[in-house]
Design a protein around this nucleic acid. Structure first.
Length: 425
RNA sequence: GUGGAUGUAGCUCAGUUGGUUAGAGCACUGGUUUGUGGUGCCGGGGGUCGUCGGUUCGAGCCCGAUCUUCCACCCCA
């Protein structure tokens, strides 16, 4: 859990409303309720759901909640870096695997609680870090068995450049959100939305060439630099993207495709340079990974000039995709090799040292804990695909030999422990 | 946040235009030589039909509310 104010305002308006706020506890809460009773805006009639106006709602959230569940791992990481700046040697790398929460309505591939696996490098402007993270995407997802996935690459500076060229720099977020939908809803609808968001016909006309951009990464960048020739920041974004592409190309990738995608616009407010998103081309799933460069996230917490870049793997979505693609091995078969059947207290006491003798010989062995019916114990062994069962009853305790049953072919033999160990090892 | 569905045994689901003791498969359990699994056969336990209220002589089936889960949009991991 974080302090609420640590998280609010970092993820955009949409993000803010998806943060799980946590109520104050105990007397603090009681005191806030008492204090709020005195606010003239809050009359009892306003406490009915239908009459709830936003300002009252805000007031309640502000007064009643002091904490918030982590929305992602990046902002808390930035907070951590600022708080521990004197103890950290920079550039600082860290990975972190933890659950995060979104106050959203769940559906396929969307969870209210899910795990993110983050890797970040903070305290370095170098684009080599971006290159390393692209390689990390490739390495991890390839090792998990994914065969066809795309790392989409864009740059916030390019998006800024676009807004600048159109003449509406303040509209960068609405514009990028709209063009992000190009593939999904088509050109016409995107233009509709842009108009609705306040773009003039002239501005709309200026942006059209952007929607025609296509071809290889190099061709896209070439068209883009002509579109952005008036924008210094836009050209800077192209240059950065070019560097990442070239360097990665020299190193090569295993299964990943690295694709420039100008329509990739992540809603997170804090990205300033490269923006990443990974999608699998083998299953219908939203993005499975994301990330980007944040040049001044720590500034909000009081530490200037601390640029970082990081990526996040969406563990649950990756799991879902792997499940769908049958990428999990049939069984990790580290299961029991020998099961001792339990005939009762005396027999169990006799068997237990033998269990440990087998284990010391490296054989995965267990003794059924209860003197359950034999049929039940045998069925247990069968269900768990345990290859050998050992029966020790009166006879075996006298003779000192074990009745060993091979569960695959049903054959049974009477042998010593040493012989059993030898036959398995 | 917007819209649409769902909710019947542990699990997956049937349940006819509202009508007597609510069913199946799987799972569990007992028996089939009382120290033996996998297939077979015979038997058994288990459900206040999400919750509350309403309509009706009578509701799992109709109506309302509420909760849950799911799906799409929005957004994103």
């Amino acid at each position: 859990m974080e302090n609420r104010e640590t998280l609010t305002g970092k993820y955009g308006d949409e993000g803010d409303s998806l943060i799980f706020n946590v109520m104050q506890r105990g007397d603090k809460l009681v005191n806030e309720v008492i204090a709020l009773k005195n606010l003239d805006e809050l009359t009892s009639s306003e406490l009915t759901v239908k009459n709830f106006n936003p300002s009252v709602k805000n007031k309640i959230v502000n007064n009643f909640t002091d904490g918030a569940l982590r929305y992602d791992l990046t902002v808390p990481f930035a907070r951590y870096v600022v708080q521990h700046q004197n103890e950290i040697s920079f550039p600082f790398k860290r990975y972190q695997i933890q659950p995060v929460w979104r106050a959203d309505r769940p559906q396929k591939g969307r969870y209210r609680e899910f795990y993110q696996c983050d890797a970040d490098i903070i305290g370095s402007d170098s684009l080599l870090n971006e290159v390393e993270l692209v390689k990390l995407f490739d390495e991890v997802l390839t090792n998990l068995g994914m065969k066809d996935f795309s790392i989409k690459l864009n740059n916030r500076k390019i998006l800024s450049g676009i807004a600048e060229v159109i003449g509406r720099p303040e509209m960068i977020i609405p514009i990028t959100v709209a063009i992000d939908k190009l593939e999904k809803i088509g050109l016409e609808k995107v233009n509709e939305e842009l108009t609705q968001r306040g773009l003039s016909d002239n501005e709309l006309r200026k942006i059209q060439p952007l929607f025609q951009i296509e071809g290889s990464n190099a061709e896209k960048l070439a068209q883009l630099s002509s579109f952005l020739k008036e924008s210094e920041i836009g050209l800077k974004g192209i240059e950065e993207t070019q560097f990442i592409l070239n360097t990665v190309a020299d190193l090569g990738l295993r299964k990943a495709k690295l694709e420039v995608d100008v329509t990739l616009a992540r809603g997170l407010d804090y990205y300033t340079g490269a923006i990443f998103e990974v999608v699998t081309n083998e299953a219908n799933m939203g993005s499975i990974c994301g990330g980007g460069r944040y040049a001044d996230l720590t500034g909000i917490f009081g530490l200037k000039d601390m640029s970082g870049v990081g990526i996040s793997f969406g563990a649950d979505r990756i799991y879902d995709v792997m499940e769908e693609l049958n990428l999990f091995p049939e069984s990790a078969n580290t299961a029991t090799q020998v099961l001792f059947i339990n005939f009762g207290d005396k027999e169990a006491a006799f068997a237990l040292p033998l269990v440990y003798q087998l284990r010391e010989a490296g054989i995965r062995t267990e003794l059924y804990p209860d003197a359950a019916k034999m049929k039940k114990q045998m069925k247990f062994a069968n269900d768990k695909q345990i290859p050998f069962t050992v029966m020790i009853g009166e006879e075996e305790m006298i003779s000192g030999k074990l009745s060993v049953k091979n569960m695959e072919n049903g054959e049974q033999s009477t042998i010593t422990v040493e012989e059993l160990i030898k036959s398995i090892n």
